Deep mutational scan, measured.
Amino acid sequence: MATKAVCVLKGDGPVQGIINFEQKESNGPVKVWGSIKGLTEGLHGFHVHEFGDNTAGCTSAGPHFNPLSRKHGGPKDEERHVGDLGNVTADKDGVADVSIEDSVISLSGDHCIIGRTLVVHEKADDLGKGGNEESTKTGNAGSRLACGVIGIAQ
């Protein structure tokens, strides 16, 4: 089992970053940390998408990683996509320092995120509470600013 993974985020604009993942036990939580720069100040949706395909930019990554066919939600919700990591918060300089621990994603097994795409979005994720159909699919997080395929790390 891989215990570490990394993702280099890039987009068409100024947004870029490096996100690290570490899972010490196969059924334990995954620590997610790193930094994203070039964002507007505020909240930005942060999700693992189904495919590791960036051939047409971030759009070819498909929908959120959702092997259990659930509705979109927040990272602490029972009803959520596996890939729903909530929001990252950018400061006035456009930098989001990421520090998350998640017990639904994994670096092995059915919820493995390796080979899938991590995406940072234009807007805040409403965590499935926006009151419309799009909220239950995407959290109304808007366009995909930057993305990268999650790969095994040393």
Results as ranks from 00 to 15, higher is better:
Ala2Tyr: 03
Thr3Phe: 10
Thr3Met: 14
Thr3Tyr: 10
Thr3His: 04
Lys4Tyr: 10
Lys4Arg: 09
Lys4Gly: 04
Lys4Met: 00
Ala5Gln: 04
Val6Arg: 12
Val6Trp: 04
Cys7Leu: 02
Cys7Asp: 05
Cys7Arg: 05
Val8Ala: 09
Val8Asp: 06
Val8Leu: 14
Lys10Arg: 13
Lys10Leu: 09
Lys10Trp: 05
Gly11Ser: 13
Gly11Pro: 04
Asp12Ser: 13
Gly13Arg: 08
Gly13Gln: 04
Gly13Phe: 09
Gly13Asn: 10
Gly13Met: 03
Val15Leu: 08
Gln16Leu: 11
Gln16Gly: 08
Ile18Gln: 15
Ile19Phe: 02
Ile19Asn: 00
Ile19Asp: 04
Asn20Lys: 11
Asn20Met: 15
Asn20Tyr: 07
Glu22Tyr: 07
Gln23Phe: 00
Lys24His: 13
Ser26Asp: 05
Asn27Tyr: 15
Asn27Ile: 04
Gly28Ser: 02
Trp33Met: 10
Gly34Met: 00
Gly34Thr: 00
Ser35Cys: 10
Ile36Glu: 03
Ile36Gly: 01
Gly38Ser: 03
Leu39Asn: 03
Leu39Thr: 02
Glu41Val: 13
Glu41Cys: 11
Glu41Thr: 03
Gly42Ser: 04
Leu43Met: 13
His44Tyr: 15
His44Asn: 09
His47Gln: 09
Val48Lys: 00
Val48Asp: 00
Phe51Ile: 05
Phe51Gly: 15
Gly52Thr: 03
Asn54Asp: 13
Thr55Asn: 13
Thr55Leu: 15
Thr55His: 04
Thr55Gly: 10
Ala56Val: 10
Ala56Gly: 10
Ala56Tyr: 07
Cys58Tyr: 08
Thr59Phe: 08
Ser60Arg: 10
Ser60Val: 14
Ser60Pro: 12
Ser60Lys: 12
Ala61Leu: 13
Pro63Lys: 02
His64Thr: 01
His64Met: 15
Phe65Gln: 07
Asn66Gln: 05
Leu68Asp: 04
Ser69Asn: 01
Ser69Ala: 05
Arg70Phe: 10
Arg70Asp: 03
Gly73Arg: 12
Gly74Arg: 07
Pro75Ile: 06
Pro75His: 13
Pro75Ala: 09
Pro75Tyr: 11
Pro75Cys: 15
Lys76Ile: 14
Lys76Thr: 12
Lys76Gly: 14
Asp77Glu: 10
Asp77Ala: 12
Glu78Cys: 13
Arg80Met: 06
His81Gly: 05
His81Met: 00
Val82Asn: 03
Val82Gly: 03
Val82Ser: 07
Gly83Asp: 06
Asp84Ile: 03
Leu85Gly: 01
Leu85Arg: 01
Gly86Cys: 06
Gly86Ala: 04
Gly86Ser: 01
Gly86Phe: 04
Asn87Pro: 11
Asn87Ala: 06
Val88Thr: 02
Val88Cys: 07
Thr89Met: 13
Thr89Arg: 07
Ala90Tyr: 02
Asp91Ser: 09
Asp93Val: 08
Gly94Val: 05
Val95Gly: 07
Val95Glu: 15
Val95Leu: 12
Ala96Trp: 01
Asp97Tyr: 13
Asp97Gln: 14
Val98Ser: 02
Ser99Gly: 13
Ser99Ile: 06
Ile100Leu: 11
Ile100Thr: 11
Glu101Cys: 08
Glu101Val: 11
Asp102Met: 02
Asp102Leu: 06
Ser103Leu: 06
Ile105Thr: 10
Ser106Phe: 03
Leu107Gln: 01
Leu107Pro: 02
Leu107Asp: 00
Asp110Asn: 05
Cys112Thr: 14
Ile113Tyr: 03
Ile113Val: 13
Ile113Phe: 02
Ile114Lys: 01
Gly115Phe: 00
Gly115Cys: 10
Arg116Ala: 07
Thr117Leu: 12
Thr117His: 13
Leu118Asn: 00
Leu118Glu: 00
Val119Thr: 09
Val119Ser: 11
Val120Ser: 01
His121Tyr: 13
His121Val: 10
Lys123Leu: 13
Ala124Leu: 12
Asp125Gly: 10
Asp125Ala: 13
Asp126Lys: 03
Gly128Arg: 09
Gly128Asp: 02
Gly128Asn: 03
Lys129His: 09
Lys129Leu: 12
Lys129Ala: 08
Gly130Ser: 13
Gly130Ala: 12
Gly131Thr: 06
Gly131Tyr: 07
Asn132Val: 10
Asn132Met: 06
Asn132Asp: 12
Glu133Lys: 05
Glu134Ala: 09
Ser135Gln: 09
Ser135Asn: 08
Ser135Pro: 01
Ser135Glu: 15
Lys137Ser: 15
Thr138Gly: 15
Gly139Lys: 02
Asn140Arg: 07
Asn140Asp: 14
Ala141Gly: 10
Ala141Thr: 14
Ala141Asn: 06
Gly142His: 05
Gly142Arg: 07
Ser143Pro: 12
Arg144Thr: 11
Leu145Ala: 12
Leu145Lys: 08
Leu145Val: 13
Ala146Gly: 06
Cys147Asp: 05
Cys147Pro: 03
Gly148Tyr: 02
Gly148Thr: 00
Val149Tyr: 04
Val149Leu: 13
Ile150Pro: 02
Ile152Ser: 05
Ile152Phe: 03
Ala153Glu: 11
